[in-house]
Amino acid sequence: MSGSIAAWLVGLATPDRPDELETKQLLAAAGIAVPRGLRLAPGDDPAAVPLVGPLVVKLCDPDVPHKTDLDAVRLGVAPAELPAAVTALRARFPGKALLVEEHIQAVELELIVGGLVDPAFGPAVMLGRGGILSELVPDVTFRLAPCSEAEALGMLEELAVAPLFRGYRGQRLDGPALAHIVRTVGDLVLALGDRFDQLDVNPLAFAADRWIALDAALRLRLSA
């Protein structure tokens, strides 16, 4: 395990249980873009948040990976409305931290890039279509880690959304950059070694000509 990952593990607020911001900090350190954001602890003043433009406010709790299911996300919050949004979420989730981020306007397609440990084959990566339909109409594919960029491009070709990377209806999503992210996730899975359990970068969105992780959840295995 590299020194920076070991240091990240040691620095977790709750041992073995990274929250969304910590997970995104790990992704950012690996070169994957994430929105600018910060954590508001229960007593922190939302007026002091230095971010501009429309914001996202959401519950920041490692026990709640599927925040939307709990209606724990507010999108497109103007800075002036931030204190009210924070107050409302705090009322519903007392004692919990919140995450405030820039709201990223992205193209419609949302992807999932994930990591997992398969019981037969060990560490693996997943690439697939995200969003609400993704569980009804699965469009996902897998490779084992490490996964080269050439192999990741092969994954992309297997997806039903592959034409969006070839100019379908004017869409020009960046396939090689996506392949690089899949490779990076595979490398991260291996770097975490036997501490790794599951990772979802979901959604991974395309905005301003780059891929950006709008949400991420990481499960670790307990240290021995």
């Binding site: 990976p65 999932i112 994930g114 990591g115 997992l116 440990v117 398969d118 019981p119 037969a120 084959f121 693996a124 997943m126 993704s134 569980e135 699965p138 996902v140 594919t141 897998f142 490779r143 084992l144 996964c147 192999e151 092969g154 994954m155 359990d197 599951q198 990772l199 979802d200 979901n202 959840a217 499960r219």
Partner: peptide, 30 residues
């Protein structure tokens, strides 16, 4: 098929550990 792990508590990706799709992808890769 290999029995999947604790599905309810899993993330989207983790829920598919042990699934046939992983076998598919691994076979193609190798």
């Amino acid at each position: 098929r290999t029995p999947a792990g604790a599905a309810a508590a899993s993330l989207h990706t983790g829920r598919l550990a042990g699934s046939d799709r992983v076998v598919d992808g691994a076979f193609r890769q190798f």
